[in-house]
């Protein structure tokens, strides 16, 4: 049986911050996807970044001093 891929999500203050992060990650070639913030994580109506947990430290380094990260959470189905 194939295991379902595990993901983490990174939350930001607002959508403009997510888009700033997206531009940086695209430039750095770090795979990610923008998804609506899952309601079990936050009641915010915005979007967040979804990525494979193995990439977390690389993403954090890429965004350091450029985009303020609110929090990183494991995405539960």
């Amino acid at each position: 049986m194939n295991e379902k891929p595990q993901y983490s999500v990174m939350l930001f203050k607002a959508v403009s911050y997510v888009l700033k992060a997206e531009k940086i990650l695209k430039k750095e070639g770090l795979p990610h996807k923008l998804i609506p913030v899952p309601k079990n994580i936050s009641s915010d109506c915005g979007i967040c970044l979804r990525f494979e947990p193995a990439l977390q430290s690389k993403i954090e380094v890429a965004l350091l001093n450029k985009v303020e990260i609110e929090e990183v959470r494991a995405l539960k189905e």
């Binding site: 403009s16 888009l19 531009k23 998804i35 609506p36 109506c45 915005g46 979007i47």
Partner: peptide
């Protein structure tokens, strides 16, 4: 509508604004 919903057209609008 930029920055409101999470669907692709909302994200595309938000990209224009950013």
């Amino acid at each position: 509508s930029p920055g409101r919903s999470g669907h692709r057209l909302s994200i595309e609008a938000a990209r224009i604004v950013f």
